[in-house]
Design a protein around this nucleic acid. Structure first.
Lengths: 148, 148
DNA sequence: ATACCTGCAAAGGGTTTGCATCAGG
DNA sequence: CCTGATGCAAACCCTTTGCAGGTAT
């Protein structure tokens, strides 16, 4: 599946979500989705705001906050609170679930994934009659110098 | 080990930390530590502030924020950012590591622990030459009604 | 035509900071 | 004594909210 294909699938998912919830398919909402899916890595609202401003696409911060909430709800975007600061976001579709090592000195974030985590989550949910929505595993520490 | 013993051990740990880092052993710092370790469950700064005010122990919020930072650094307290709101804290000494299921509807938090998580963290750190400080696993979802 | 949505700016709320005062070493 | 710590309040910053005007349906 090409990148363009992925972006059109994502657009479909969002469209269906909007229809199902009787929400309007405004151009801003799709422009935001497209901007997010055209980039890699983490971002915060301010960064997204600047990305779009630099393309001369005018969106207000209010709309960004509003739209990202919808995207989280339909699982196209994930929100993280790594440090003490503002929220970080990332696209989720076709990125596969992964977790994060956070270097507390540099703030750098390394992604990793381990298939065993799923089993643990599953049993924790079963044990507590819990219906999973999503999960996040954050590992804080420091990366040794010189090896990377 | 009794509760009182635990509290005195914790006080020792904190004292050593302060000495090592050439920080002052002020009465406020120990009063805050003691207040935290005399209670169970999660708390935020505002709650802690009120706890102490109600005991007629005057501490400023600034000191609470400052001190809790030290307690986190010496691993006597853990900070969580479950939702979008303010930080939640909990004492860590002798509570054993545990993780959290967060009911996104009610906000209720259930603790669980799974020994397998440790292996996963360890290998993730090894693979990335990462020196672990701490980690947190958050599982978001909804608890089924009627079973609890 | 009717809500809903957007943009703007102001309000909000948790956390941090500046500064004068206090007190531990 | 000297420097770090405290308390207070103001500043900060990210996020939310209110309102007037615009637009999807």
């Amino acid at each position: 599946m090409s990148d363009d294909d992925a972006r059109s699938v994502v657009k479909q998912v969002f469209t269906e979500y909007l229809v199902t919830h009787a929400l309007r398919k405004t151009p801003e909402r799709f422009a935001i989705l497209d901007e997010i899916y055209s980039r890699e890595g983490h971002f915060d609202i301010e960064l997204l705001f600047n990305y779009m401003k630099n393309k001369n696409y005018r969106v207000s911060r209010a709309t960004l906050y509003n739209t990202i909430e919808l995207l989280i709800d339909c699982k196209l975007v994930t929100r993280h609170k790594f440090g003490r600061n503002q929220a970080q976001y990332e696209k989720t579709y076709r990125s596969g679930h992964h977790d994060h090592l956070i270097d507390t000195r540099s703030g750098r974030i390394i992604e990793f994934s381990d298939p065993r985590i799923n089993d643990i989550i599953k049993s924790a949910c079963e044990d507590n009659s819990f219906i999973l929505h999503h999960y996040a595993l954050y590992v804080y520490g420091e990366q040794e110098k010189g090896n990377h």
